[in-house]
């Protein structure tokens, strides 16, 4: 295929992607009323268990290398699912914080800004953690630390709690499911 025709197709696809993203963003802003309803509860304990290096070490001692690689891959796949949910929740909280900032209430400005920054940091870390998990899936014997994601998530939950209390003191906030 001629390179020029290929470039034309790429340019058309790029513009289509940009316009789609713009429309999606506009629709999301209009539907920002019930964002917190789309937060997925996450079991922090189960998440910490999956990232605990002591657990990995115990499994490495108890299982054969082939069994360990299989079990580790399964744990890593479960971890990907958790981290993906964490990233999704962080994205929702960014939108909640941005919405609170746009509302113009001076009382909410600082906690909303803190929530947005914490959520952005968490989403960024979750993205990096997912990249490292996929690398670890290719090399199951390598170690990595996704524990920072758990720590950031807890910190983010605290900030969300504060914003939630300022917006509506009567209703408590929780971002994780408890057994």
């Amino acid at each position: 295929m001629n390179l020029a025709i290929f470039i034309v197709i790429i340019a058309a696809l790029t513009l289509s992607a940009i316009l789609l993203l713009s429309v999606k963003q506009t629709l999301q802003n209009r539907q920002s009323v019930n964002l917190t309803g789309s937060i997925h509860p996450i079991d922090v304990e189960a998440f910490r268990n999956l990232t605990n290096p002591a657990e990995d070490e115990y499994l490495r001692r108890c299982l054969t290398p082939a069994q360990f690689r299989r079990v580790r891959r399964e744990r890593l796949l479960a971890l990907v699912a958790y981290v993906h949910l964490v990233a999704e929740n962080a994205g929702v909280l960014v939108a909640v914080g941005e919405s609170a900032l746009a509302g113009g209430d001076a009382r909410l400005a600082d906690p909303a800004r803190a929530l947005v920054n914490d959520a952005l940091l968490l989403r960024r870390n979750a993205t990096m953690a997912m990249a490292r998990i996929y690398i670890a899936l290719a090399w199951p014997n390598s170690g990595f630390a996704a524990a920072r994601v758990a720590d950031r998530y807890e910190q983010l939950s605290g900030t969300a709690m504060l914003l939630g209390r300022l917006q509506n003191p009567a209703v408590p906030v929780r971002l994780s499911a408890m057994r």
Partner: peptide, 24 residues
């Protein structure tokens, strides 16, 4: 100017969350 509307919050338990965080 967008109409300012309060965000509904999830139905959850703050006390349990705080307890779990302290345990961690």
């Amino acid at each position: 100017k967008p109409a300012i509307s309060a965000q509904p919050l999830p139905e959850n338990n703050l006390a349990v969350w705080n307890r779990e965080l302290e345990r961690l």
